[in-house]
Design a protein around this nucleic acid. Structure first.
Lengths: 196, 196
DNA sequence: GCCCCCCTAGACCGTACGGTCTAGCGTTGA
DNA sequence: TCAACGCTAGACCGTACGGTCTAGGGGGGC
């Protein structure tokens, strides 16, 4: 037994993420940058430095199954984030602004190539399971805001404005390569949402 | 000379639109439904019942040049519409709501397959001319709202919110297959924009 | 020490994509 | 009547895509 066996046991991969997770992470990042149809399987394999066999082993359904997993991942991520923020009794406007700021970091870090949420993925085939997954994610996020805003009819309206200003603002900011546009629209929306 | 020569002169095409216009219209419609990468040249040819030669004669630059033309078309269309509405001294919120209602008709007519504005087209390659064209369109629309709102710093914020709520609302509504979400978010945004 | 099985590895396949090229039709002007 | 040209027509090409399949590598259980 050498020191290597202790410090870097071979059974544990070098990367802390498993193969499946790495595939999901790379796929999500690419889909957010170029949309579903804009990404080739080979792009994902190149990004992860993995062979085709691995991908089709973990995702027998191929590209679409991987995309659905990626959507599910980001959906859970954001949903959990919203849940924990709202659990602190934070006001909805403040949570929205926080989320927007995180999106800004995301945009800047990727030099405005990535779309932080699901905006680009929407360019998916009509009645597919992928569309359904995206739809579910949006519903969950909407429901979080709605519940935090009191569950009234007015709360539903405000929740819609919150998500719309976020997704729309991201789109504007990405195109203009200026996070300003996102901050401006979301700040205004947050203002409106916070008033009784 | 027969009656046919008078009633249906051969020189005039059956369709009121020229070949180039038909290509642009079909391309725009398809791109709005499936995004740039989701549409094949053959889809456009099938929709117009035109051969490849015609497309590459009118658009030597191929798919991207056609897409840029389509973006320019919708950009001009919306820009002109905004200009004429604002020329009547209509309030910005009212104009925004009108535009949203037209988008709703668009969504319904296409059974929620199309994205009325440019949201989906954004899934384009990074630094291409197409991205630039989309960016220009958004800038022009933003400027229209900004000018109508007085050109102040606050006006810029409100213009951002207007476009963001519109684009974001469209995205929400399309996924949920319910125009409600668009109307709700835009109504709330319009309310905020109209107050001094 | 052996086998078994999970996962990696990548050659391979059919297809459909974007784009090119030449032929020919029909209208226009002389 | 004919020449010239704008546009249509579609066969054709190289490539890159999504997906399949078989072989092999390497730990873990016995």
């Amino acid at each position: 037994m050498t020191i290597h066996d202790v410090e870097f046991p071979l059974a544990q991969p070098v990367s802390p993420l498993g193969t499946k997770e790495r595939l999901i992470a790379a796929a999500l990042s690419l889909f957010q940058a170029k949309g579903y149809h804009g990404v080739a399987i080979s792009d994902i394999l190149e990004a992860t430095d993995l062979p085709k066999g691995s991908l089709y082993h973990h995702f027998p359904g191929g590209k679409e199954e991987l995309a659905i997993a990626a959507v599910g991942f980001i959906a859970d991520e954001v949903d959990a984030r919203l849940a924990s923020e709202f659990a602190k009794n934070k006001r909805a406007g403040a949570v929205l602004l926080d989320l927007a700021h995180e999106c800004v970091n995301w945009l800047r870090r990727s030099d405005y190539t990535q779309t932080p949420l699901l905006g680009l993925l929407a360019a998916s085939p009509g009645e597919s399971a992928l569309t359904q997954a995206i739809c579910d994610a949006q519903k969950r996020w909407l429901a979080r805001f709605e519940a935090a805003l009191g569950g009234t009819e007015d709360a539903h309206d405000k929740a819609c404005l919150a998500l719309a200003s976020l997704e729309g603002g991201i789109s504007l900011a990405r195109m203009a390569r200026s996070s300003d546009l996102l901050i401006r629209s979301v700040t205004l929306a947050a203002l409106h949402i916070n008033q009784r």
